[in-house]
Amino acid sequence: MLKIIGACIIIFASASIGRIGAAKMEKRFHALQYLQGGILSLEREIGYGATPLPEALISASAAAGPIAPLFQLTAQKLLAGRGINAQEAWSEAIEEVSLPLNRADCEILAAFATGLGLSDGKDQLKRLELIRLRLQAAEEEAKKEWQNMGKVWKNLGWAAGVILVLICL
């Protein structure tokens, strides 16, 4: 009886690890999607409303789903009156918020904040569009990875659990 319970636990744990791996890929894909939503909203605020950056970031956070805290925290840091620029505020916020992104994605985010708010509207829109295109490419790649490797992770989790149980028995 104990053996059966132990085997179940091993299979369940192994399958969970597989599922967590797959969920991580799914989260990255969705995060990249929401980031684009947030940046698109920011483009609207900057391009049409000429809304000051802290307010624009707060408005954009509504379209950023699970990434909203990053936008909100950056706005808070800008409004704190320390005289820091958007790049510094964004970098500090990235350190404080946990994001389901990989290193390459973080590099895009760093490029996003460079010069944010520090030029005229036209230039800002060009920069944001460029970043959105880079995120779009990253999203495509994340989607493929999730669709292909997600299933592999899930199945591998189960399979590894079963193999481990067979070896132990």
């Binding site: 000429a50 809304t51 000051p52 950056l53 802290p54 624009a56 320390r82 005289g83 620029n85 708010g117």
Partner: peptide
């Protein structure tokens, strides 16, 4: 000076063209 400009412009030069 840099800090003052950022604070005065709310880090948003585009809004103050």
């Amino acid at each position: 000076m840099e800090q003052a400009v950022l604070l005065l412009s709310n880090s948003s030069f585009y809004a103050l063209e």
